[in-house]
Amino acid sequence: MSALLELAGVSRAFGGLRALSSVDLAVQRGEVVGLIGPNGAGKTTLVNVVTGVHRATSGRVRFDGEDVTRLRPYQAARRGIARTFQIVQPFSAMTVLENVTAAALFGGAARSIAEARAQAREQLAFVGLEQAADRRAGALTLAMRKRLELAKGLAMRPKLLLLDEVNAGLNAVEMDAALALIRGIAARGVTIVIIEHLMKVVLSLCSRIVVLHHGELIAAGKPSEIVKDARVVQAYLGRRYAEAQPAHG
C-alpha cells in the first residue's frame, strides 16, 4: 500500500532564503509522525507547503495517490488535509458551534448547514467543548481554543491531520488532557503529523520522528533511535532539550 503523504525533493525558497531544501518524506496511513527541529528549521513551512498555503519551489507532493503540489488551501482541505495553527485562528465573532459547523460544511462531507451543525456537535462532544457551544470563540481560554482547533480539524473528516504546536502555552494538566485527545484521534484511524517542541510529547505520542534542520531532513526513525542520533543531538537536543518549556509559538 502506498504512503498517504509523500514528499519528493520538495524545496521552498523565500527570496534568497531556502526554507526547505529537497525534503523527501513519506507518511504511512495510520502513523503518528513527530516533526521536530529547532526554531526556523522549516517545520511550519513544510506544513504550509502540504496544505497549499505556499507552493513548493521545486519537487512534488502526493496525497492519497494524487499530485497535490499545485493545489490551493481550500482544495487541499477538501481532499482531507486538515491542520491546526501554531497561533490559533478561530472566527472570533462566531460561536464555537458555528466555527466547527463551518469546518464540517466547507471542508467536510456535510451536504447542508443542518447536517454540518449536527456533525459539529459530535466533534464538540468528542473534544469536550459541548458546554461552550454557544459561546463566542474569541472569548475562550487558550486551552479551549486549542480544543476548538482540534474540533474544527476533525469536523473536516480528515485523512491527515497536521498539528502545529498544539500544546504550546498549555499547563501540565491541560497538556495531559490534550495528549489524551490526540491519542483518541489517532485511535480513530486518522493519520497525524505533529509539530512539537516538547520532546516529552513527541516521545509519548509518536511512532516515528523526523527531524528538520535548516530546511533539510537530517534524520528519521523510531523515537528511541532519534534520541541517540548524533546529528540530531547536536542540531536540536543539545541546545533545546535542556531549555525550559519554550514560550508561545
Partner: peptide, 16 residues
C-alpha cells in the same frame, strides 16, 4: 462570514 472574519483561515477550512 468566515471570509469576513479571517480569510486565510476560511481558505484553510475548505472555503473557495
Amino acid at each position: 462570514r468566515c471570509i469576513q472574519q479571517n480569510e486565510s483561515a476560511a481558505d484553510m477550512l475548505g472555503v473557495n
